[in-house]
Amino acid sequence: MTAPVRLAVHVGRDVPDGLTAVLSALPPDVQPVAASAREALPEGTVAHLYCSDALPRRPATPYAVWRVPGADVGDLGDVPALADAGARHVRPGDLQVSLRAWPDSARPVLPFTRAGLRRVRDLPARLVGEARSDGVSWGAPGEHPAEAPLDTWPTLAALASAVIATGEELWTALAWAAPAVTDAAGARLLGLTPDVDVLVGADPVTRARLAAELADDDLRAARLARSGWQTARSHRPAGVAAELCRRLGVRPAPRSTVSGLTAALDALGTPPHSLVRRRARAATAGLPGAVTSGWRPDREEHS
């Protein structure tokens, strides 16, 4: 067994919420350990994560910095910086951590498949959905929209050619990879880049026009949908943890135990009941351990 590699974590006065989540989501063979300047580093420490209020003049390298409110460390150059998504002190290029729950059962449906589903479900070929505080409205662009209760939003998020939303509804839309239009505050709050992850319109008329254009432009809608979905996903603690390891050059051991079929299927985003999972299980039925990610039931400890 290879020894785990350690990420030394230097915290200051407070521990940001997102930090706990990101550390919990580190790959299993990367262990976070508390560290301070006054004592020897634990064996196997390969990188450091400093909260900005505990950042010394000469940090040990390689390191990353978690921006804590009130302890501005400015531009860090190549050093990876992390921050809570949508916080005021976030700078462009920061890894943003969002603790919003990923909607249950959401799966990315890119515009091509959306069009197919609309056809199969007998919905308009071009369909724009909008979330408001009291409900949703939907319809072909330019026609009088129909109204529905807010809890039908996931259906629009999954099937519309383009959606208009902010806040939690925008998050849901991104989880379904909907081509989305929002306002400037909505984009900032979720850490999205205008024109890359979402389109931004200042007023309802502009947003409606942008959504109608998007519904007509397959290429742009596909790029926006893919990018928005990936960006939102990358803000989840697991995504941030993986990117942090990559930027710090921390590689889990190549013969990681997490190499089972299930891990591979999970990493690709396979839904729990899809056919390919059953096929994988059936194919490996005679090979215990293949499905359980290499975990062996006869082993006592498995942390």
């Binding site: 799966r107 990315p108 890119l110 091509f112 498949t113 690709l268 396979t270 839904p271 899809s274």
Partner: peptide, 12 residues
């Protein structure tokens, strides 16, 4: 359509 959707996700 679900196969197509999943393939799209896997490809991405």
């Amino acid at each position: 359509l679900e196969e197509q959707r999943l393939l799209t996700e896997w490809d991405v």
